[in-house]
Design a protein around this nucleic acid. Structure first.
Lengths: 290, 290
DNA sequence: GCCTAGGTCCCGTGT
DNA sequence: ACACGGGGCCTAGGC
């Protein structure tokens, strides 16, 4: 039996169970009527109510209600849990330093307390991240633009690391910013920062191009891109189920790879002139690290 | 008794309990050996292990291990929970649409299943937010700069809403961006976007000033600010316990309000020239919306 | 420890 | 619905 539960314990019984569970490194759930106070980076307080407190052996504390994905109050990993009986209530206090933060949960009554031994893998492999998108594009750089040659990923600049850096067929440097989902103004600004940084650093006469690669872009972001002569290429993230126009299931082979549309990019700079109707291409990311 | 628990139930017993709990709108916890698969905006899978599944009546599903604050897998509010016995395992499936997402948790064995009726307030009042900082500054605009006159908050522009907009003693428009914590490059870019937008819209001859108000700024962000002629004012967020130099406890009265330093801001633009050692001022935000 | 940026971000607010 | 930005964001990766 790896899970022990007590119902309606006295505060003192609950305290004993808690101390034992802390000792064993168990995952602990406490359900009961409680108040919650937090003070640290901000401050908050929560009146009486039935809630679930989750205590992890790594120092995490989570207070959950019946709504929302995020806990109504919490303490990050690395905190220290302490339990005590004060003024007829069970007080569970979770504290950490740098920054100094304290979470206090005062239980008027504990309806249930459980302790469980957790085990097993906790690392999961996620597909569909921006890194997957980057790898897929490294395999098929022509999706960005026919003849695009990748030179570096995460290239450092004064303004931060560039997702993907390369050169176009004319030999002009190209800064590529990747996003796994629809982008807003901040992504446009981010790309603009990087382009400006490369222009300052390389200082070549050749103008630096900036291309935002994402599934789609908001109107405002599109305008901001245009203002700075930046470009946009629509690409669905790998493993996305969403499709724009009866897309086929993801194959390892991308269908119209070299049908990159003959419209030459205009060197003038008022780019982003791709037709709006252009459907986003879907990428697969079967091969890791090629 | 508002919490019911069954230990080591058969899958069929667990299923009955689950259906009842769904019906009652209870908060449910299931602890046992399980695998987890997710497919939707991304995709992931997680091998066998002992974990805690939390199901909320609002459709939220959370899979927690013994580490980290964030669940290892989850489903947002609005999803629909379904339970079934398949291939000798208890399958809990949480599904939502737009975007289409499915979370499957397959329990090989259920060690414990609990259902509890949650109640009580779930809204908490947090102090120390950016809005509190804004209100404090509206009460004491001289903290930003002697003679600064606030004219609008959340003023809309082509680039998005400006936190605080006003005028300096020379009548020049001032864009203020507020941050409750140390800022990096993105905040500098954000401010720059807003300043450019105001310059385009108002189109006055008077140059638009931009001031970033935050507790502190990174080197990179400071350089970016300087490049665009933007300024920085150090202000601690209200209710912060952190102090730079034996700060007093937060009073409603701010101590050296009008000791704003006589160094006139240079109209040239290579600003941000405040001495680095300048200690941040601490604000209180006692009065809401005065 | 700090810095930088991603995230199945979540979440509230406005349109 | 989408859009936009805040968050006690959290978390990972580098330095």
């Amino acid at each position: 039996m790896t899970a022990t539960t007590v119902h309606e314990p006295t505060h003192r019984e609950a305290l004993w169970e808690l101390e034992d569970a802390f000792e064993r490194g168990d995952l602990i759930t406490i359900f009961g009527r409680c108040t919650v106070e937090y003070d640290g980076r901000a401050a908050s307080s929560l009146g009486l109510g039935r809630r679930l407190l989750l205590l992890k052996p790594d120092g995490t504390a989570l207070v959950h209600t019946d709504e929302k994905q995020k806990p109504v109050n919490w303490q990050p990993p690395g905190s220290e849990h302490h339990a005590a009986v004060r003024d007829g209530r069970l007080r569970v206090r979770s504290v950490r330093t740098s920054p100094d933060e304290t979470l206090d949960v005062h239980f008027e009554t504990v309806e249930q307390l459980s302790a469980m031994a957790v085990s097993g893998r906790r690392d999961l492999s996620v597909t569909g991240s921006e890194a997957d998108l980057r790898n897929a594009l490294l395999d098929r750089p022509a999706v960005i633009e026919s003849g695009f040659e990748p030179l570096a990923t995460e290239r450092p600049t004064d303004a931060g690391p560039i997702d993907l850096f390369g050169r176009d067929t004319d030999g002009r440097p190209v800064v590529v910013e990747l996003k796994r989902r629809r982008v807003g103004p901040s992504a446009a600004s981010q790309l603009q920062r990087y382009v400006a940084a490369i222009e300052r650093e390389d200082g070549d006469d050749a103008a630096v191009r900036g291309i935002l690669v994402a599934p789609s872009v908001t109107d405002r972001a599109r305008r901001l891109l245009a203002e700075h002569g930046l470009e946009f290429v629509a690409v669905e993230p790998p493993s996305s189920t969403g499709d724009a126009g009866g897309s086929t299931t993801l194959d390892t082979e991308l269908s119209q790879t070299d049908a990159v549309d003959d419209s030459a990019h205009d060197p003038a700079g008022d780019a982003t002139g791709d037709d709006d109707g252009e459907p986003a291409r879907t990428l697969s990311a079967d091969e890791e690290s090629h």
